[in-house]
Amino acid sequence: MKLKSNIAISENGFMFDPYTGDSYNLNSTGVEIIKHLKAGKTNEEILAELKRKYDADDLILEQNLYDFITMLSHYELLDNE
């Protein structure tokens, strides 16, 4: 899964999708995942990064990440390859 290109995100969590004109707000963890996606990382790489960084149960991190990705896909922010 790849984030659509040209998606703009600010440090404050405001995200703008120029294809649809929709905007979103994200919390800091959300911003971080978007940045990883923009950098072309895979879900597995992102998960490993989160596990390394955060004090949280591995399975919860996994569940939350996939839930978040589901939301990105629901909002059509991902390229379907």
């Binding site: 995200m15 979103y24 707000n25 994200l26 919390n27 800091s28 963890t29 990105l72 909002y75």
Partner: peptide, 11 residues
Amino acid sequence: LKYEKPIINKI
């Protein structure tokens, strides 16, 4: 670091 679940909300 302290973890917070990632959230995205449409405005």
